[in-house]
């Protein structure tokens, strides 16, 4: 049985939307950061589905680069999160508010 590409696209759109919603709703910085990773993985799924549809390997190569960049971002992001925990003793987004928005 062949799964139509629309299924993959709908799934990745749902994953992306969950990521966006979690980014906006969640209050813990680590969870907020995880929701960004979810969004990136939704994008990866889209790339792989389209690469399969177009019979183009370039979409899959793109996924590898997204993974590499996500790993680099995670390294920097977690370092910043550690620094903020040391400075403020909290990881709640609402309490990281020295400057008014």
């Amino acid at each position: 049985m062949v799964v139509p590409i629309a299924y993959y696209l709908v799934l990745s759109a749902i994953l992306f939307s969950i990521g966006v919603a979690a980014f906006l709703i969640k209050r813990n910085i680590i969870t907020v950061f995880m929701s960004i990773e979810l969004m990136l993985n939704a994008v990866n799924l889209t790339f792989v589905a389209f690469a399969h549809q177009w019979h183009q390997v370039s979409g899959q190569i793109f996924v590898f680069f997204v993974m590499v960049v996500a790993a680099a971002e995670a390294a920097v992001g977690l370092a910043i999160i550690i620094a903020i925990f040391r400075a403020r003793n909290t990881l709640n987004v609402d309490q990281v508010n020295l400057m008014k928005l």
């Binding site: 950061f33 992001g77 403020r88």
Partner: peptide
């Protein structure tokens, strides 16, 4: 400064996605 960094990081990565 570190607060600026985390805000920039989170919103920047969000935009990248």
């Amino acid at each position: 400064s570190i607060e600026a960094s985390i805000k920039y990081f989170l919103l920047g990565s969000f935009a990248t996605a």
